[in-house]
């Protein structure tokens, strides 16, 4: 539990302890389990349905699943990106500071000198590791169930070109990377929200709501000028990785955008966390 670790020590030790706590929590594994259920459900439904989905039916690329099991991963990642994944990210990042404050363990973490900035960095790093692990779980479970049920074969890209199994493997891994990058900005927002309150649930809910609101704003044509500035703008840009020749512009644009959000909300979190009174 969060309280039973040593405060202080080197940053690496602090990070290691943070990750240990993260990965020992039942909550983390429950969220991994829920995420892993999505590719399994998708694959089972397609496998047992009498008529395979036709072109353009159901979630994106579902019709390609029977051709190459690896597309289970891609479809599951696309399905989880708008809601399920941001929810889990909100839980981890929103709880980062507020959770410790709520439990009364925050002040023990801050006894080391210059502790606040370092704690913030470590907390963010923990959330970022989760943001990488969560899509990786979807990816790996998708690979496993997809190749078991549908086998591994040639894959058709959006451009109509056909690539071999190795290429398909690499592309789906890149899709997972894109999704992980997409969650970095949201993690920073969650961290900032987490410094505002001592009620972890409040910060989690605020972060999750923001993720949904940003996506709703992204649907409104009247706000087209705002769209490139929304952290959700490139969330579904992973499709560019399934074109031939592969287009990295979505991935790099996303990286720049998320870095901007990380810088801004990271700085806000720093401003808030280093100036607030920690009473609990």
């Amino acid at each position: 539990m969060p309280g039973d670790r040593a405060a202080g020590g080197t940053t690496i030790a602090l990070l290691a302890s943070e990750l240990r706590v993260l990965l020992r929590r039942g909550r983390t594994w429950a969220m991994f389990g829920a995420l892993a259920a999505i590719p399994v459900l998708l694959a089972l439904v397609v496998f047992f349905s009498a008529s395979p989905p036709g072109p353009g039916e159901g979630p994106p690329l579902l019709d390609k699943v029977t051709q190459n099991g690896m597309f289970v991963s891609v479809t599951a990642l696309v399905v989880t990106t708008p809601l399920f994944l941001p929810l889990t990210i909100s839980v981890v990042s929103g709880d980062a500071i507020a959770g410790e404050a709520g439990l009364g363990t925050l002040r023990y973490l801050l006894v080391a000198p210059a502790g606040r900035l370092r704690l913030l960095v470590v907390k963010y790093a923990g959330a970022a590791v989760f943001a990488v692990l969560a899509p990786a779980v979807v990816l790996l479970v998708g690979w496993a169930i997809g190749s078991a049920l549908f086998g591994v074969g040639e894959a058709t890209l959006l451009s109509g070109d056909v690539i071999g199994p190795g290429g398909a493997l690499a592309r789906s891994a890149l899709v997972a990377l894109h999704v992980a990058i997409s969650m970095l900005g949201l993690s920073a927002i969650g961290l900032f929200a987490s410094t505002l309150t001592t009620v972890g649930v409040g910060a989690m809910a605020a972060t999750a709501v923001l993720a949904v609101v940003a996506q709703v704003l992204g649907q409104l044509d009247q706000l087209a000028w705002l769209h490139p500035w929304l952290f959700t703008h490139h969330w579904l840009g992973m499709m560019d990785l399934l074109r031939e020749p592969i287009s990295f512009s979505g991935l790099t644009d996303n990286l720049v955008l998320q870095a901007g959000y990380l810088a801004f909300f990271g700085a806000l979190a720093y401003g808030r966390f280093t100036t607030k009174d920690v009473l609990s």
């Binding site: 901007g260 810088a263 801004f264 700085a267 806000l268 720093y270 401003g271 280093t274 100036t275």
Partner: peptide
């Protein structure tokens, strides 16, 4: 001064 970075980023 702790809020300066947050102002600087935009």
């Amino acid at each position: 001064t702790r809020w300066l970075p947050a102002a600087a980023v935009p």
